Amino acid sequence: MTHDLKPAIPSPGHPAVEAYLAEGYDSVVGMSSRFAAAICARLLRLQTQEGVTGPIAEIGAFEGRFFIALAHALEPGELALALDIFSWPDPGVEQRFEANCARHGIGAERRRTIKGDAGAMAPADLLAQAGGAPLRFIHIDGEHSRAALTRDLALATACLAEGGLIVLDDMLHPGYPTLMVAVQAYLEANPDIVPLCVIDRETIVGATKFVLCQRAWFERYQSRLLEIFKDFVWPLGADFEPHWCLVLSQDTRLAEIV
């Protein structure tokens, strides 16, 4: 089976994101993949085109690698919130986060740093940090335990805007096999939320992400994703029993049957 060559990553849809991914991404310590960052930036552009606007948040911002890409994808006047305990692996991580944001063009007027445990935060407090507006995009990359992910998902759901997206990091990672248990329980308890797509891993550290959306928005978003990412759609998709969604991958081959 032969395959035509395609770009290593899809267009992020924003010149500032494209420049950062090409020239600055690897200089910021972190484990998120460039492939996923490009897709998530393009999802933010898609939201804007669909009339979904407002602030975003990342739970587990670390030194800012993924956060900076997301912030560059925002429209003028939109705010990016960075939530983290900022004590791992050492207390200097918050200073490095702030320095990385400044070095890569995300000024203090475009972001808000929130130090603390997101799982202990009330939805009203997070919304207040966002100026009272619901969040259109929430990336969850916090503590990798079932209990923490369950709390983070509850917070994200309570703060989600109409048409909003929740992105879960390190799904199906061999180091955190029980996270999928928390995700399945969440989906069963929240039938109005469904997987929109799976973003395949780039490496074992640049791991798989799940993108979740409101069920009422699934068809609307899926039709656009099929157009935008047509070169990156793995043909068989993902079966969440009974829900089906797209898989976006750099490698779209199927196994050869001989």
Rank of each mutant, 00 (worst) to 15 (best):
M1N: 12
D4Y: 05
S11Q: 10
P12G: 04
E18R: 14
S27H: 08
S32E: 01
S32D: 04
F35W: 12
A37F: 02
I39A: 03
L46A: 00
Q47W: 01
Q49T: 08
T53P: 09
A61D: 03
F62Y: 13
R65P: 00
F67G: 02
I68A: 09
L70F: 00
P76E: 05
G77M: 07
L79W: 02
L79S: 10
L79M: 13
A82L: 07
D84V: 01
S87Y: 11
V93S: 09
E94D: 11
R96V: 02
F97G: 04
E98L: 15
N100M: 03
G105F: 01
I106A: 10
R111N: 07
R111G: 08
R112K: 13
I114C: 12
M121C: 06
L127V: 00
R136P: 06
F137L: 12
F137I: 02
H139E: 08
A154C: 03
A156N: 01
E162I: 03
G163H: 13
L165C: 07
V167A: 14
D170N: 09
D170Y: 04
M180I: 08
V181T: 14
E188A: 15
E188I: 06
N190I: 04
I193E: 12
D200Y: 11
R201T: 03
E202W: 08
T203H: 11
T203R: 12
V205I: 12
A207M: 09
L225R: 03
F229D: 07
D231Q: 14
W234A: 14
A238N: 07
W244V: 04
S249M: 08
Q250D: 04
A255E: 12
